[in-house]
Design a protein around this nucleic acid. Structure first.
Length: 423
RNA sequence: GGAGAGAUGGCAGAGUGGUCGAAUGCACUGGUCUUGAAAACCAGCGUACCGCGAGGUACCGGGGGUUCGAAUCCCUCUCUCUCCGCCA
């Protein structure tokens, strides 16, 4: 959520920025400015009345105390009109505030200056390409065939016990999953991230904190009996640990990591996008979340991007880094870098990680603040990224490292898997 | 699932209708003292909004009500804790 103060201060800059997302926000922005001005002036009037009422109440109290009940009762008559006026003004303030809040929620984050205007993924900028795409032997297969050949994943079994999109990993497939989780967590920890194990269900307040609620509840599995939601990403519980907190600026940057399964309803997906591991209802992910001073967030973003790149290097996978254009970046993001690994067998790029700076957009909803040098509260900047999402990394590993006699495990993973080849 | 208790500032914990934004202690910040530190002492120390400022308004889990006036009384919701039951 954008801050209303910022909209007041630089409406034109916001309108210009949002154009990069293909959004004309000028109507909303100007409506907000007007609502906000109205709300403040009505509220001011209400507060003046409240002030008078408070004064009268005090007088009445003192009169009663000194035994002058008659004078007190006379004063009481005067409070009636004040109370009515206050109630009326308050109703108006509430009404305006609700409208204002709804409008604010409808505005996405303003893209960073480096973000290019654009509509969709076709307009994303490739900022870096690393590694070489392997030349596969004849008869190389996509991961869903490899998974069957080597008995790594049983999709049908998942359908039987739950439904489509809930695969069962087995044998070397299951062990590889476990190895990757540990590998990623260890790497993150070594890079200064504090490891957390967090709940996989969250309450509604947390859903609001990170922006899954309202409006996007359809993307989460819900347990209405208990008012809980299955998390779509560890970002939700990890970030919400800091909701309503005033953190100590001396601790910046606050870096956290956690592994969780992620649950997504993914209603309406179909076709080759959902084949095999490409899109699932349940998958594993290790997430990194950072909180820092506004002036340091972009340095930290670069650091996080470099860290994720290092993971892919160790997994010996060819990848590219994209700077998402305005139209393709997430609602809450100011700047997002996507990591895509090339899948040699599918001959397409697979998104394996997404690293974003939300600036104050998320912190505003979370009320996540710190005290600056003047002792004033300021919103923190929050960032997060996947480090990493397992299914597509697994798909890319299987496809890129397949050889005629089996699947090679990259050296960095061998100490975690306990085997260097799946044959 | 059954029974009970409770929710107050970073923490602990007073406060049962007016002078309470809220005692006290701890923690924290600054200062005095000290070679330095500790101790002691002095001072400061919640959040948000409005206002150039003086200042004002709101907030004692959330919402509603009674009252001239609510942390305090009433209703309601949520959450937490304790005991019993069940149980990895």
């Amino acid at each position: 959520m954008l801050q209303i103060q910022r909209i007041r201060q630089e409406p034109e800059a916001i309108i210009e920025g949002l154009k990069k997302r293909g959004i004309d926000a000028s109507e909303t922005v100007h409506a907000l400015i007007e609502l906000d001005a109205n709300r403040r002036s009505i509220r001011h009037e209400m507060e003046e009345n409240q002030h008078s009422l408070n004064g009268l109440s005090k007088e009445i109290g003192e009169l009663f105390k000194s035994g002058r009940a008659q004078e007190a009762n006379a004063l009481k008559q005067e409070t009636g009109t004040l109370k009515e006026a206050i109630k009326d003004l308050n109703d108006r303030v509430q009404l305006i505030a609700t409208k204002e809040h709804d409008l604010l929620l409808s505005l996405p984050n303003v893209p960073h200056e480096s973000v290019k205007a654009g509509r969709d993924e076709k307009d994303n900028e490739e900022v870096k390409r690393v590694g070489t795409v392997p030349t596969l032997h004849d008869g190389a297969k996509p991961h869903w065939d490899l998974a069957e050949q080597y008995d790594l994943i049983d999709f049908e079994l998942g359908v039987k016990i739950t439904g489509a999109g809930f695969p069962v990993y087995k044998n070397h497939g299951a062990r590889l999953q476990r190895a990757m989780i540990n590998f990623f967590l260890d790497e993150n920890r070594a890079a200064g991230y504090t490891e957390y194990q967090v709940p996989h269900f969250v309450n509604a307040a947390s859903g609001y904190g990170t922006g899954q609620l309202p409006d996007k509840e359809g993307q989460m599995y819900e347990m209405p009996l208990d008012g809980l939601y299955a998390i779509p990403t560890a970002e939700v519980p990890v970030t919400n640990m800091f909701r309503d907190e005033i953190v100590n600026a001396k601790e910046f940057p606050i870096k956290s990591t956690g592994y969780t399964p992620c649950f997504r309803r993914e209603a309406g997906s179909y076709g080759k996008d959902v084949r095999g591991l490409n899109r699932l209802h349940q998958f594993d992910k290790v997430e990194i979340v950072s909180i820092t001073h506004p002036e340091q967030s972009y340095t930290l973003l670069d650091e996080m991007v470099a860290h994720v790149a290092g993971l892919l290097d160790k997994l010996e996978l060819p990848y590219r880094i994209l700077r998402l254009c305005g139209g393709d970046a997430g609602f809450t993001s100011a700047l997002t870098y996507d990591f895509e690994v090339y899948s040699a067998a599918q001959e397409r790029w697979l998104e394996v990680s997404s690293v974003s700076n939300f600036e104050t957009f998320q912190a505003n909803r979370l009320k996540l603040r710190f005290k600056d040098e003047d002792g004033k509260s300021q919103l923190c900047h929050t960032l997060n990224g996947s480090a990493m999402a397992l299914p597509r990394v697994l798909a890319a590993l299987l496809e890129n490292h397949q050889q005629e006699d089996g699947i090679r495990i990259p050296a960095a993973l061998v100490s975690y898997t306990g085997f260097d080849k799946i044959a």
